Simulated assay, not measured.
Amino acid sequence: MKLPKLVLLSLGTIGLAGCATAPGPVEVTRFHDAAAIAQVGSGTIFIEAAPGEDASGLELAPYKSAVARELAALGYRETSREDAQHIAQVALDRYISREGNRRGPVSVGVGGSTGGYRSGVGMGIGINLGGGAKDLVDTELAVAIKDKASESNIWEGRAQFAVKENSELARADANAQTVASALFREFPGGNGETVEVWVQ
């Protein structure tokens, strides 16, 4: 089985207090339709929760906002679903793990999937994550950009990030900024390529 090429990138320093040591990298994997790649990065777009996600849930809101900022910086213009040429579907999975072993969700919720990536529960507001120093908050953010007319995916990306639960980067807003920035770095990225974007 051919493994995806691994590339190391650097994500600019995020000016947040409370990060005494640098966290690990954000692992990013992206796929795109070569025939439709010319459509990527321009035109109008509508951002929504992926099927199975709670469209009105507070846990997804900062991630949708972070994705919207990244897409705007790339040249997309956010508009209504009716007027959009493209649809961006956002899925989120947040859970607590210890030493790499999945232990349980950060909060209770129902998830779905998009672009073949797993998604599930989201992070609530003001939840006490608990646990000891070895507890990590794991985040998986998946985004699929679809051509509205054909309903086919033209780009898919997934970002995975683990950080200590007492880090500022475990908080929803900072976490969303970190994973979304990594996901869209050097957009659209290599097709089928996995990169590690280091957070400094």
Rank of each mutant, 00 (worst) to 15 (best):
F46M: 11
G122Y: 10
A55F: 12
G100R: 10
I45G: 05
M123A: 13
Q85S: 09
G52T: 10
Q85E: 15
D83E: 12
A88M: 08
D54I: 12
R81A: 14
Q89A: 14
G115P: 05
G115L: 08
D54W: 04
D83W: 00
G116F: 13
A72L: 14
Q85W: 13
V106I: 08
L92N: 10
A84T: 04
A50W: 06
S65D: 07
S80P: 12
Y95H: 13
G57M: 05
R103V: 08
R94T: 13
P51K: 00
G112Q: 06
Y117W: 15
A55V: 13
G120V: 01
Y117M: 11
V90P: 01
A91S: 13
G124E: 04
H86D: 08
I45T: 01
V106R: 07
P62G: 07
G104A: 09
E53N: 04
E82S: 15
P62K: 03
E78V: 09
V67A: 01
Q89C: 04
M123Y: 07
A68W: 02
E78K: 11
R103L: 12
G115N: 03
E70T: 07
E70G: 12
Y76W: 11
A68F: 06
Q85L: 15
S65M: 04
G120H: 04
N101K: 14
E82Q: 15
Y76I: 06
G57I: 02
E99V: 06
D93P: 02
Y95P: 03
D93V: 00
G115A: 08
G75L: 10
G126A: 12
R69Y: 05
P62N: 04
E53Y: 10
A55N: 09
A68M: 06
L60T: 02
G124D: 04
A72E: 13
I45S: 01
K64H: 00
I87G: 06
G124P: 02
A49K: 00
G100N: 04
A73W: 11
R103E: 02
G111W: 00
R98S: 02
S56T: 15
L58N: 11
I87S: 07
R103Q: 09
Q85K: 11
Q89N: 05
Q85R: 10
G109K: 03
H86E: 12
I96L: 15
V106D: 14
S80F: 08
Q89V: 02
K64A: 08
G57K: 14
D93F: 03
V67D: 00
G112V: 09
G115H: 06
V108T: 14
A91V: 03
K64L: 10
G126K: 15
S119G: 13
P51A: 11
G104W: 07
Y117Q: 12
V106W: 07
G126M: 09
G57H: 13
E78C: 00
E78Q: 14
I47Q: 06
A50G: 05
A61M: 08
